[in-house]
Design a protein around this nucleic acid. Structure first.
Length: 540
RNA sequence: GAGGCUGUAGCUCAGUCGGUAGAGCAACGGACUUUUAAUCCGUAGGUCUUGGGUUCGAGUCCCAACAGCCUCACCA
């Protein structure tokens, strides 16, 4: 099947004036005896660390005294130049430093060149003076373009305007960028390009790298919280012979040697529960699941899921754990509990609100949840078809329509109608209710937890009922007989929890679309347009 | 899968009523040893996503395709 991974790179003669000029400089760097693709470069400091050393920059006066500098950034009106002049004869001194990074701004000022370089901790200005760095370094600096990676050795000082600057003494070329960077102020704005060329988005768009590093911190924090609570992380199979544990359509794949149809996993649940049977009393997996469903600002076909199971616990244990996971994650990112969300704010200050399904139903609809006729009437007012539906199903549809969007939260919704949660244990005190909670924030379901069903006969029966209700297309979700066999060996009563990691990261990074927290979200193939080769051949 | 919006220089964007393509940044040449979205002078850069159609004439109007975004559905 013909397919293109990306727009083909044009022939060298067609690549335009920008690349041509960069290639000329590339050649010149080589001619000057430097490696345009660089070598190992040790001993450089993170740029943020250099900014932290600003206090080491001093004014050395002619009379031998050394003065600390005021912070020129503390007051916008402060005139560093005038302050320097007022101190009399002297020169600025500072530590020897080495830094490496990408050139993001470049300015010529006669026999001086200013560049701002960026690493993954921050930006810093460097000053290259012809007479200060010598002819060889100066010739090399003439080959710099925006986007190039360079190393600098020099002293950390301030310019006359007070800007913390590395005064270069020698330069090391680390790598050429053949492509021109996007607009130096606006970066890339086209959503499609930002996602396809995430490397450009990360390198040049403000806050993007920071956001993804924050995601990493959140995930690390979750592992650390769970480890601290005595949970062990495992790695279950991602290729399943039966796609179970959730109601979703799987991706289908195939093993050649075994000649066997396989499904990409849609959930982590069934294997984690097998491990409960095996004696792993506190166990979790944090990993990718795949669902062959539509794409939206809150859905990507592959996403990251956390599932946690605790032997001898119940949904209450999971609720406390959920809150701790989130609170710890916010702390780990160094943020306050009140987080910005678009134009508004989400307050994650613990404890989170806990309310029952029925209470919230009444609060947001004005109809008592046990008023079956009233709920049905309300559903019909909304325009739902209620004919032949179980009262709890009608109630659930109304809840999703009227209540969920109003749950700004964070709020734990407890005790769902049992008939819409067949795989959950019922409350001892009220069998009409299931021991289940979901955590909602900004109308978005972030976590879902149950007191898990461990009766193998009941589980099998419910599987069969569930499968009987599915149409032909979904019937590929077959009974997982081995899972039933596992339960027959005795699974401890347990609490189980699932958290959508991408959605949690969205909330903690003020990202309104899931694609902003997934490095490489799924996109259609590039270059399949009308001019694309092969279009039409593979349509049939 | 359905509907709506969008696609113009490497990037960010203008483009009026249908009349022959514009700016800023980036690039190239020049000036400048403390600039900072540097500034100043000059030069070059276009298959207006693609393919049809209407028209004397289409970036602009119509149809289709492709891609992205939004809403809805499936789903978490």
């Amino acid at each position: 099947m013909p397919s293109e991974q990306a727009k083909p790179i044009p022939a060298p003669e067609d690549r335009g004036i920008h690349e041509a000029s960069r290639r000329e400089k590339l050649a010149k760097i080589g001619a000057l005896g430097h490696d345009p693709w660089g070598q190992r470069f040790d001993g450089h400091s993170a740029i943020a660390a250099l900014q932290g050393r600003a206090g080491e920059v001093k004014l050395q006066l002619a009379d031998g005294r050394t003065l600390d500098l005021p912070d020129p950034k503390a007051d916008a009106a402060f005139d560093f130049r005038a302050w320097l002049a007022a101190q009399g004869q002297g020169e600025l001194v500072g530590p020897k430093v080495r830094a490496a990074g990408r050139i993001v701004l470049l300015r010529d000022a006669g026999k001086l060149k200013f560049a701002n370089i960026r690493d993954w901790t921050g930006d810093i200005q460097i000053l290259i003076g012809k007479s200060q760095v010598g002819d060889d370094n100066w010739a090399l600096a003439q080959c710099f373009d925006l986007g190039d990676l360079i190393g600098v050795d020099g002293t950390l000082r301030r310019t006359k305007t007070g800007e913390l600057t590395i005064f270069a003494e020698s330069l090391t070329f680390l790598s050429k960028s053949i492509e021109p960077p996007p607009d130096k102020h606006h970066g890339l704005s086209d959503t499609e390009q930002r996602q396809r060329m995430r490397y450009v988005d990360l390198a040049y768009n403000e806050g993007v790298l920071e956001r993804f590093l924050k995601r990493t911190k959140i995930v690390q924090s979750i592992r650390s919280t769970l480890g601290g609570e005595g949970f062990v992380e495992i790695e279950g199979p991602t290729l399943h012979s039966v796609a179970g544990g959730a109601a979703a359509r799987p991706f289908i794949t195939h093993h050649n040697t075994l000649d066997m149809q396989l499904f990409m996993r849609i959930a982590l649940e069934l294997h984690l529960k097998r491990l409960l049977v095996g004696g792993m009393e506190r166990v979790y997996e944090l990993g990718r699941v795949y669902r062959n469903e539509g794409i939206s600002p809150r859905h990507n076909p592959e996403f990251t899921m956390l599932e946690v199971y605790q032997a001898y616990g119940d949904y209450g244990s999971m609720m406390d754990l959920t809150e701790k996971i989130i609170v710890d994650a916010i702390k780990a990112t160094g943020q306050p509990f009140r987080l910005p969300w678009g134009e508004s704010t989400i307050d994650f200050t613990p404890p989170f609100t806990r309310a029952t399904y029925d209470e919230l139903f009444f609060e947001h609809t004005g109809v008592k949840a046990d008023d079956t006729a009233g709920v049905k009437a309300l559903a019909e007012t909304i325009g739902f078809d209620t004919a032949g539906k179980h009262p709890d199903v009608i109630k659930s549809e109304v809840f999703e329509e009227k209540v969920e969007d109003a749950l700004i939260g964070p709020v734990f919704v407890l005790d769902y109608p049992a008939s819409i949660c067949p795989l959950t244990k019922r409350k001892k005190s009220n069998p009409a209710l299931a021991e289940r909670f979901e955590l909602f924030v900004e109308g978005m379901e972030v976590a879902n937890a149950y007191t898990e069903l461990n009766d193998p006969d009941l589980q099998e029966q419910l599987f069969r009922t569930q499968l009987a209700g599915q149409n032909e297309e979904d019937s590929m979700a077959k009974m997982d007989h081995d899972f039933i066999r596992a339960l027959r060996h005795g699974m401890p009563p347990a609490g189980g929890l699932g958290i959508g990691i991408d959605r949690l990261v969205m909330l903690l990074t003020n990202s309104q679309t899931i694609r902003d927290v997934i490095l490489f979200p799924l996109l259609r193939e590039e270059g399949r347009g009308a001019r694309g080769a092969g279009r039409g051949d593979d349509e049939a």
